[in-house]
Design a protein around this nucleic acid. Sequence first.
DNA 1: GCCGTTTTCGGCCCGACTGTTTTCAGTCG
Length: 570
Amino acid sequence: MKNQEIANIFYSIADILEMKEVEWKPIAYRKAARSIESLSKDIEEIYKQGGQKELEKIPGVGEGIAKKIIEYLNTGKIKEYEKLKKSIPVKVEELMNVEGIGPKKIILFYKKLKIKNLKDLEKAAKSGKIRKLPRMGEKTEENILKAIAFAKRAGKRKILGYALPIANEIVSKLKKLKEVNQIQICGSTVRKKETIGDIDILVTTKNPKKVMDYFTNMEGVERIVAKGPTKSTIVYNSIEVDLRVVNPNSFGSAVQYFVGSKEHNVVLRRIAISKGYKLSEYGLFKGNKKIAGKNEKEIYKRLGLKWIPYELRENRGEIEAAKKNKLPKLVEMEDILSDLQMHTRYSDGNNTVEEMVNACKKRGLKYIAITDHIGQLAVAGAMTSKEVKKQRKEIEKLNSKFKNFKILQGAEVDIKLNGSLAADKKVLKELDIVLAAIHSGLRRGKKEQTKRILSAIESGYVNIIAHPTGRLINTREGYELDWEKIFEAAKKNNVALEINAYPTRLDLNDIHAKAAKEADVMLSIGTDSHSVEHLRFLELGVYVARRAWCEKKNIINTLPLNRFKKKLGI
DNA sequence: GCCGTTTTCGGCCCGACTGTTTTCAGTCG
């Protein structure tokens, strides 16, 4: 899929045009980029099936941008983009990644200090050159250095929501080969970690050469890093993908080994030794005799353990639990009956209420919360109280048509700096469900943020705290919170904490969600969808819940509507 | 460069926050 590549180019074009002070076009390019990256269909397929006309049906894509997409699909380049890049020889993408840095600062830094990349920027900030520029000071430098440090730490890891579809795509391609017998995604991808270094795939086959030849020559391979009979590495959609061929007799032990995590495996091997065995990727051995290896379950059994779901293999107590047969029965996608955060055209979503509803019904959900913005988020097109009423009528009309599906009218309201809610109390009271979240003042300290959220929880109007830490994976660290206080208040006031399933958020993360679960706080999952294409992210929320040891009972989306309402007191 | 249930030309929803200023530019959402 070239969707993300193309979207990234349009983002860059927008940035460069903004540096050149071109009006309006940046907005248009960004809009197109946003809708292209959230397409669930391969843009190349769309073009192949419907040509330029079909491309122009993508919101924000018109004749000009459609032609550029076609140019890229055909030639791998966009001439105008190449021209723009040459006119300002700066690593725009790299610098834009630094929080607090935008096109205006980039062009200023380039013109005044010849800053072209991250390295130059760091040097300039460290040597105090930035503070001499107009409207810059010590604090600016400090913030830049902090942001660079974060960007460096995040490194080149890909987010799960990006890597997982690619892994699945490769697996489905490989499965079509009749030479491939068993196949399994391993590593952090199958453990559903929020970011992934590379994708590991294991296969068994009688014809390694054929499989490797196919793998390294598949459409979409950008680079072959290594190629051998048992292991090959390619770069595919800018992710490194390893394919390993193993013996069927060792498939289980190889999966065990390559799934990891490293910490989990270390403990497992120690247990093997204590029982007089040796565990490696080739099998479980007693002396020279292999006693298990074909399948994973057998290995765990021989070590006196129940089989452990991949998401738990982090050495966070799962091995002890497996020993005592006390592993949680993890929540599953099939248990989820609802999606509790999504937006429509009433605020900043791309689709109508009806379109969102139909897509959710198709996905087998039983009820949903429509949660458009209200409050001060102007750019997100926050609803006025008049619009809330209009939407209410529309929802009531739709609800009257359904027997086995219910739309709850909700809203996502801002928590202001002083902790008050940025909406009319009367409006909030009329809604079926209220989500509250921090959207501004993200850099405030732990004490202040905790106070803000506590006051939302205790307001008596709020049912769910949305994306509680405000983090954006690889982009922005969330603010700190005093979790003990938040959990206590949430429990006392019957407020749920959200696992936001949007790929770049996953907020709460696995660690915080697990702590919430242990504190007996309700958790909700919401996709934060801004178009029907986003609804598929629901599974990412389930993965976080699973990594957080959550069972069905911990997630309020698993409750049938009547029990859900009772539980929340709505 | 896109878009149209007020427009095929003329708009493109802006308000809060921060860090720098002493009236505001840049960034974020």
